[in-house]
């Protein structure tokens, strides 16, 4: 059974449809890239996965997102444990106003880890996993805001992983990064897909080509086509997908 499956998902802001009737399954332990032109509903789709859509004024959501069979959009769904399951990496890194150490320890502390030695181990482990440890081990208690943007994004990755999610939701995570930092992050993704299901929103088609195992193409709020990367990139069925891949629409 697929881990995440979406059934007839429709989102409207003040009566204006952003996503309509999206139905698909997201494959486990692969990188699923969601591509499409700006304003096609990619980010809204991602925000439904961890219910951050709740924070948007005037958003109405219908349909179902089933994770392990349970509908997370149900009013009585446990949003806290849902969000623990779904890590988020946002477009612009958002380090919390605290030290590097406290940023990584933030999630584990929220979910009940208090033991200092345990926290130390968690911080070291996830900073290593996001390949930031070498650069910050000497200044773990310095403000996170002093890191470079590329380092901040890796810190945010470490922080997200420290919560021990099962899925990583990434919203154009390289958009504000320099090429080297972007490469760093991409490399991590390839390693991480062994253990995590990664949903990557991107408007860079080349990034999707490099990383994705599975591609979903949205256009004007509609799910146009989805399938294994190989097939969708080389043999798209829909005219709009063809136009997007050839660069006619972007």
């Amino acid at each position: 059974m697929p881990h995440i499956s979406v059934r007839d998902l429709t989102v409207a802001y003040d009566g204006h449809a952003i996503l309509s009737d999206v139905t698909m399954d997201i494959p486990d332990r692969q990188i699923t890239a969601i591509v499409g032109p700006s304003g096609c509903g990619k980010t809204t789709f991602l925000r439904c996965m961890n219910r951050l859509i709740d924070m948007t004024d005037g958003a109405r959501v219908r349909g179902e997102v089933l994770i392990d069979g349970a509908n997370i959009l149900a009013p009585d769904a446990d949003v806290i444990s849902l969000r623990k399951k779904m890590g988020l990496l946002s477009q612009k890194p958002q380090p919390l106003p605290m030290s590097i150490y406290d940023n990584v320890a933030y999630g584990p502390r929220l979910h009940g880890t208090r033991n200092k030695r345990q926290l130390d181990a968690i911080v070291e482990r996830y900073l290593k996993l996001s390949s930031l440890w070498g650069e910050v081990r000497e200044r773990l208690h310095a403000p996170a805001a002093r890191l470079s943007v590329g380092q901040q994004q890796r810190l945010c990755l470490a922080r997200g992983l420290a919560v021990e999610p099962e899925v990583l939701l990434c919203d154009e995570p390289c958009a504000s990064l320099d090429p080297t930092s972007a490469q760093h992050i991409e490399k991590r993704f390839v390693e991480l897909k062994q253990d995590y299901t990664i949903v990557l929103v991107t408007h860079i088609l080349r990034q999707a080509r490099r990383l994705a195992d599975y591609i979903v193409f949205f256009y004007m709020g509609e799910l146009v086509e989805h399938g294994p990367a190989e097939q969708l990139l080389n043999d798209p069925r829909d005219e709009r997908t063809k136009a997007y891949l050839s660069g006619t629409i972007s």
Binding site: I80, G87, L88, S90, Q94, L96, P97, Y106, H111, V163
Partner: peptide
């Protein structure tokens, strides 16, 4: 976005 970073971690 800063608040959402915290919400997103539960």
């Amino acid at each position: 976005a800063l608040k959402e970073a915290s919400y997103a971690m539960g």
